[in-house]
């Protein structure tokens, strides 16, 4: 078990199974097909990301360095949250990027009844330590426990 302390972007508490990518997470490429065609597991559709391509994202603790790609990214994340097809939380090793921040904030302000805690600045060691399938607990103050 190891504990990491990050910065809270949008608050909340959750425990979920980790899905880990060490390369940039392309939000549009990852979510679009799954949302569009009703994949209940919301499997990652980004063919360029061999670490997580085809893995379910819904209700997972998505551990990543940052998001990349189209500026629909925040809009797509907002839609995923509105449709309750979102990850349980998003945990960034570094500083959050503008697209992920937009998605997290839009969901927080405009979507009722959905909480997706987002924590950033967890450090490179976080992404080195956490592995697919590990249990991740996010606390209100930005503490992340990985076991």
């Amino acid at each position: 078990m190891k504990e990491f302390k990050g910065r809270v972007v949008t608050p909340g508490e959750v425990t979920a199974e980790a899905v880990v990518t060490k390369q940039g997470f392309n939000t549009l490429a990852s979510f679009q097909m799954a949302l569009q065609f009703g994949d209940k597991d919301v499997k990652c559709g980004d063919q360029s990301n061999t670490e997580i391509y085809g893995k379910p994202l819904i209700n997972k603790a998505l551990c990543l360095p940052q998001t990349i790609g189209s500026t629909t990214g925040g809009l797509v994340l907002y839609c995923a949250c509105s449709m309750q097809k979102n990850p349980a939380c998003m945990l960034f090793a570094g500083h959050i990027d503008s697209l992920a921040a937009a998605g997290a904030v839009l969901a927080d302000v405009w979507v009722d009844g959905v909480t997706m805690p987002v924590v950033d600045c967890l450090g490179d060691e976080f992404l080195e330590y956490v592995k697919d399938g590990m249990t991740v607990t996010v606390k209100e103050d930005g503490t992340v426990v990985v076991e």
């Binding site: 500026t71 629909t72 925040g74 839009l106």
Partner: peptide, 25 residues
């Protein structure tokens, strides 16, 4: 927003814009 337009506006036109997401725009 629109990643290809933002990077062009910043780089080639010298305008100032973050990589804003849809809706934020």
């Amino acid at each position: 927003a629109e990643s290809s337009a933002v990077v062009y506006a910043n780089s080639v036109l010298g305008a100032r814009c973050n990589r804003n997401s849809g809706i934020i725009d």
